[in-house]
Amino acid sequence: MKYLNLALLILFPVAWFAPLLRAALLPIFGMDEISVITGLQSLWGSDPAFALLVTFLAIFAPFAKTLGLALIHFGLLSPKTLPALHILGKLAMAEVFLIALYLIIAKGAGYVTIETGWGLYLFTVCIIVSLFISHKTETS
C-alpha cells in the first residue's frame, strides 16, 4: 500500500500537466488543450480569489494528503492525523466534481466543442486510489 501511495506522489504532478480536455469555440479553428495548470494560470489572471481556492483543491489538498499518508506508512507521522488527512481527501474530490460540472456547462453552450483528455481520467484515478489508500490506512 505504501508504494502505491508513493507512486501517487509522482502521478499527481503528471496529472496536473496532462490535458484534462480539449476545447474550441468552433471545431474548424482547432482545439486548445486545457490542463489543471493552464486552467489555474487563466484563473490567476482573471479571478485570483477563486484561483486560490481551486489551487488549494486541485494541487495542495490531494498532494498534502498523499504526503501525509506516506509519512504515516513509514512511521514518520502519527496515525492520529488521519482525520485531518481524510478531510483533505474530501476537499480534493471536490475538484473532480468541479471539472465534471464545467464539462456539463460547456457542452450545453451550442458553439463550444469539448473533448475529454487522458489527464481527466488520470487525475480522477489518482484521487480514487488516494481515497482507497486512505480507507485501507484507517482500517489497519
Rank of each mutant, 00 (worst) to 15 (best):
Leu76Arg: 13
Gly119Gln: 03
Thr137Met: 10
Val129Gln: 08
Ile114Pro: 05
Ser46Asn: 06
Gly45Pro: 00
Leu91Thr: 04
Ile28Thr: 13
Leu25Ala: 14
Leu43Val: 02
Ile72Val: 11
Gly68Val: 07
Phe29Gly: 15
Trp118His: 09
Leu98Val: 09
Phe56Arg: 05
Ala61Met: 03
Ile114Gly: 00
His86Val: 13
Thr81Leu: 13
Ala106Thr: 05
Pro79Asp: 04
Thr137Gly: 07
Phe63Lys: 09
Lys80Glu: 11
Leu131Tyr: 09
Asp32His: 14
Ala92Asn: 06
Gln41Trp: 02
Val36Ala: 10
Tyr3Asn: 15
Leu76Pro: 01
Glu95Ala: 15
Ile114Asp: 02
Ala61Arg: 05
Trp44Cys: 07
Ile87Met: 12
Leu9Lys: 14
Leu26Ser: 15
Ile37His: 02
Gly108Arg: 09
Asp47Tyr: 00
Asp32Phe: 11
Thr55Asp: 00
Ala94Ile: 13
Phe74Ser: 11
Gly108Lys: 07
Ala15Met: 09
Ile59Trp: 00
Phe123Asp: 10
Leu21Tyr: 03
Phe132Thr: 14
Ala49Thr: 07
Leu82Phe: 00
Thr139Gln: 12
Ala24Thr: 06
Ile127Phe: 04
Ile72Asp: 01
Lys65Asp: 02
Leu71Asp: 04
Phe60Lys: 11
Ala18Phe: 06
Leu98Asp: 01
Thr55Leu: 03
Thr113Trp: 07
Leu26His: 13
Cys126Lys: 10
Ser35Gly: 06
Gly75Gln: 01
Gly119Ser: 05
Ala23Glu: 09
Gly45Asp: 10
Gly117Ile: 06
Val14Ile: 15
Leu98Pro: 03
Thr66His: 04
Leu131Gly: 14
Glu115His: 11
Ile10Lys: 14
Val14Met: 12
Gly110Phe: 11
Glu95Thr: 14
Ala61Ile: 04
Ala84Glu: 08
Lys80Pro: 00
Trp16Phe: 13
Leu103Met: 10
Ile87Trp: 08
Ile72Pro: 01
Thr124Gly: 12
Gly45Tyr: 01
Glu138Trp: 03
Pro27Gln: 04
Leu76Val: 08
Leu25His: 12
Leu53Arg: 06
Trp16Ala: 12
